[in-house]
Nucleic acid binder design. Sequence first.
DNA 1: TCAGCCTTAAACAAAT
DNA 2: CATTTGTTTAAGGCTG
Length: 363
Amino acid sequence: MENSSHTLPPSSLLFSSSPQQSCSSGRLSLPLSPISFPPSPTSLSPATAESVHSSPPMSHCTASQCLIQANISDQDDLTCLNWLHQRGNLLPLQPLPKMAPLPQLEPTQPLPPALAKPPYSFSSLIFMAIEDSPNKRLPVKDIYDWIVNNFPYYRTASGGWRNSVRHNLSLSKSFRRIQRDKSQVGTQSVGKGSLWCVCPEYRPALLEVLRKTHSYHSTNSSLINKPALLEGADYGLPAVCDSMEISDPLTRTLLLSTTSPQINADTLSFAENPPFPLTPDHEELVTMDSVEYQQEEVIDEMEKDPLSDSGYIELHYYQSQQYQYLVVPGDTELDLETVEILQLDTEAQEAAGSLLDLAGGGY
DNA sequence: TCAGCCTTAAACAAAT
DNA sequence: CATTTGTTTAAGGCTG
């Protein structure tokens, strides 16, 4: 197994993703406050904000959903940009005034990372944008906005990249177009075009690409082209360690995910509250309110996770520029004190290691 | 060399 | 009518 020290920095604890875990189960008792998860619809247009409030009521939720919910409740204003200010190391991403003059650089002066082209492919950018949305679906315009807001390079780039975004959406099998809910015509602006989401079956691959790109560029400082949200954070989670804040979408995308689609927290939230019917046919357009969703079908399509029946869960965290995880018994009371104990518990680490070996290794 | 992936550009149609 | 959105084709660069 590689890169898994099985030590867990308590304050960088993220989430387990056992299907059985839910906020209402009481088994996850993370002292997560104050959570300052970005409300995500930061850059959303009013048309998209509509979809935020159209989320189905959650009788129970996944850890990530609880986080998001907790935050949304604190920030009703969907245009609130406070989360961007909540980390001192987000200067390049601070919401610049729309017409803010960009720094004038000498011709020979290298571009600061925030203004250099990000290393991420358009597919990855789109993926991150969609993943960072509350309902995992965005219209094209909001994908543009997300990219611009998170990667200042595109603020000044010629408009051709938007064409590339649309080109990617259309051409890539990873993304699926879904119709907006037309039932709200007359009450709110429906907006132009469709919503785009990530095809669940391609999500693991997209995550893997993101991980590889992230890992490569985080270990090659000369090639640094960090997403603005991570600027100054060394791709790590120092802010998380300090305050349990997870402010950047890339980190959230990576850390709230696991290698297994079945126990992926976002996938679970998606499966529990699908914003639209899933069909294997990429060409098919469906309305979001017309088809009953069958969770079992999605689960069946997913690869069986070796840990799913083991009674163990995965904890994902970031340490030493590596994404690592620890496997602990599923009924562990996951407060920080317990985590600290686990960190010192070599027996648990050995158990985790053997389980991980069984599960097929780490990152 | 080749295939595959990605980016960029462009043209066009449809929707708003 | 202008703009946005979505699709398609083509070409070139990069990489394994």
